[in-house]
């Protein structure tokens, strides 16, 4: 098959689009950055791509709430073509602000009938933006993006990343369906959370996410969102301790992009 095409969705305030483009290109994909205005004008443009990535940043300044305004645009104007995209077996990845957008638009987890979100990404318990590296455990093999990965060391950089399910049954459903795919801290394999609380302490759980959840996927495993930044750990010199370690070939995050591109091989 030809190189998979990756649409990296730009919006006012998106700011991780270039390095995300670079990571997808390194992984063998054919990425293209596209402004959301182009997609709103011609939603069918989406059909030409195999992967949609909503990158990190501050879409519309994160004004009102992180990711909310772009999420509303997707929900109100692009939901048909996004549904088709999903139904066609294609991949959608949201990183950081992209995770916030996918969650609040209902692209990742279906909204309730009155439009309410089943889970949100709330303000960090620390009350402020923080940039720090965290250990991560891949807690289910449900997601296409984390196949073959057990753990990763990646940076987070956000103010609103505390994953909060609307209720305990919502969490139980995500767990039962293997949709909790990435957790902060080091966990034994198949250790699935049941309690509506964090088990890993700050700073390894950097925001107080319930059940230490750092990333979730949809029921198919093809739509996924995560708060940490895999595109910021594709080069060995990205690792904050690279001067102390034996030389590596790539960074932990590279596999995420390779998995996405490899899915279409």
């Amino acid at each position: 098959m030809a190189q998979p095409r990756v649409l990296i969705l730009r919006a006012p305030g998106a700011n991780c689009d270039l390095e995300t483009e670079f990571a997808f290109a390194q992984a063998g994909g054919r990425p293209q950055r596209l402004h959301v205005n182009r997609l709103l004008e011609s939603p069918t443009l989406l059909d030409e791509f195999q992967v949609l990535c909503v990158p990190g940043g501050f879409s519309y300044g994160d004004d009102v709430a992180a990711g909310r305004i772009l999420a509303n645009q997707l929900r109100r104007h692009l939901s048909d073509c996004l549904q088709r995209f999903k139904a066609d077996g294609k991949l959608i990845l949201g990183i950081c602000n992209g995770f916030q957008v996918l969650l609040k638009s209902g692209v990742l987890l279906p909204l309730q009938d009155d439009g309410a979100v089943p889970a949100t990404l709330a303000w960090n318990d620390s009350g402020r933006f923080e940039d720090r590296w965290v250990p991560l455990t891949v807690s289910s093999n449900q997601s296409v993006f984390f196949q073959g990965i057990d753990s990763m060391y990646l940076p987070v950089a956000h103010a609103e990343g505390k994953f909060v399910p609307a209720n305990a049954s919502g969490l139980a459903k995500l767990v039962a369906n293997q949709q909790v795919v990435l957790r902060y801290g080091t966990h034994p394999p198949n250790d699935m959370p049941t309690a509506m609380s964090a088990s890993v302490a700050y700073p390894d759980n950097p925001n107080g996410s319930l059940a230490d959840i750092a990333g979730v996927c949809d029921e198919t495993g093809r739509v996924c969102g995560l708060m940490p930044h895999p595109e910021r750990h594709v080069d060995p010199t990205h690792h904050p301790q690279w001067t102390r370690r034996t030389p590596q070939k790539t960074g932990d995050g590279m596999r995420v992009f390779q998995n996405a591109i490899g899915y279409f091989a």
Partner: peptide
Amino acid sequence: IRQYDHEVQGGSVVKPLVGANN
């Protein structure tokens, strides 16, 4: 330092905080 994003644009090599515990 931690309130600043010091890694966006993906080119970070030596960060403002370094060492065994960053």
